[in-house]
Computed example of a mutant assay.
Amino acid sequence: MTLFRKRLITLIIIVMVLIGFLPQKASALTVSAKGAILIEQESGRILFEKNAHQRMRIASITKIMTAIIAIESGKLDEMVKVSNKAVRAEGSSLYLKPNEQIKLEDLVYGLMLRSGNDSAVAIAEHVGGSLEGFVFMMNQKAAEIGMQNTEFANPHGLDDHENHYSTAYDMAILTRYAMRNEKYREITGTKVHRAPNPTEKWDRVWRNKNKLLTKLYPYSTGGKTGYTKRAKRTLVSTASKDGIDLIAVTINASDDWNDHMNMFNSAFEKYDLVKVVEEGYLRTDSSFYKGKVFVDHDFMYPLSSEEKKEIKLNVELLEPDKREWRKQENVPDIVGTLTVNLGDKTIEEMPIYFDNGNVDRPKETFWETLKSIFLVILGVK
């Protein structure tokens, strides 16, 4: 071997060793699931997705829809008579007894914690009048909240119908909707629930099957597990940390617990929930609009540290009609638009209101209220 070749080989080895010491870029997030999505609750922003709009069988995460319809029915305090059809439901069960009377609220707990298929049928028959009536309600709600690639055929998710499917994205939409309901959040976040047992001296005790909530993940706030032979493992879960609330969905996943924890950890590390726009009056150079225009709510959005620098706000106001708008009450309620851009992408458009006496003013902060009181005492206001 020549001296040149020896030196070349030595140089190559040195370069390879040095490359090994260089900081490595974090590898892209991967999941075992065939379909997956991660969204932020407040804004609905998609933070990660994989085949998120592909229609798939969903197993027992179906019961999220069953639960929220039962909760919204206003009948949680009613007693439900369990039918023979409910008792004969296949798969996971609460072991309900024919003709027993059980509170609808307890059935929803059993549905979400223990995934009782008998509970799902009992709920459907009581709230919808029949299984068919309840399925109609499920699909009606799905259309109402924008689940465009979903069809429900039963209240439990068993593989007894071909036309029962959804997508990771649609299930995230459903969960985002459900998580706005305080009772749903309470039930999905419960680790253990006790319900009266009509034929025994002791209560029924139901422990949540969601291991993220019960032992694996300290930031877990709830969710729903699922499994059938055709759908495989499905999972919806929620988590909260440092003011940011996340929703994760996986469908047909061999390692769903880790999929969810990895998605959550990646987002918690990368994003902060930022108040991009604050409710209240806007600054403007226009003498006509000065101190008179406002937005009526905050706009929160998850942003990485790099993205925070790319946020731009643009205010567009109507040209004042000096003839028609001489009286304040003649000015339209909405006089412009506040556009929020992330780089070249518009992420929000907010109406700008005029304080004409016809629209609700923004809420005063504590210090603004204190200032107003002080001015009244002085006789200035």
Rank of each mutant, 00 (worst) to 15 (best):
A253C: 03
L246G: 04
R283Y: 14
I244H: 04
M261E: 15
V277Y: 06
G226V: 10
D255R: 15
R230V: 09
Y217P: 09
H260E: 11
Y217M: 10
N262F: 11
V236H: 04
V276K: 02
Y281H: 06
S266V: 11
K275Q: 12
S266K: 15
F268G: 10
V249G: 05
G243W: 07
T250H: 03
S254A: 12
D255V: 10
K275V: 08
L282Q: 14
R230L: 10
G223W: 08
D245R: 09
A239F: 03
E269F: 14
T238S: 11
A253H: 02
V277D: 09
G223K: 07
H260N: 13
G223R: 03
N262C: 05
K270M: 14
A248Y: 01
S220R: 05
A248I: 00
G223F: 01
S266W: 15
I244K: 03
Y271D: 02
D272S: 12
V249T: 05
I251Y: 00
V277S: 10
A231G: 02
T234D: 01
I251D: 00
K229Q: 09
T228F: 02
A231V: 02
V274C: 00
L273Q: 10
Y281M: 07
L246V: 01
Y219T: 05
N265Q: 15
M261R: 15
I247H: 06
A231M: 01
I244G: 04
E269I: 10
V236R: 02
E279S: 14
T234Y: 02
K224H: 10
Y271A: 03
K275E: 12
T234K: 00
G243L: 07
W257P: 07
S266H: 15
I247K: 05
L246I: 01
S254D: 12
I251M: 09
D255S: 15
T250V: 14
S266E: 15
S254K: 11
P218K: 15
K229T: 06
V274N: 02
T225G: 06
M263F: 12
G222R: 06
G243P: 06
G243Y: 09
D255Y: 13
S266L: 12
Y271I: 04
D242G: 01
D256C: 01
W257Q: 04
Y281N: 04
R283Q: 13
S220V: 03
G226W: 09
A267Q: 12
N262G: 05
F264T: 10
A267F: 13
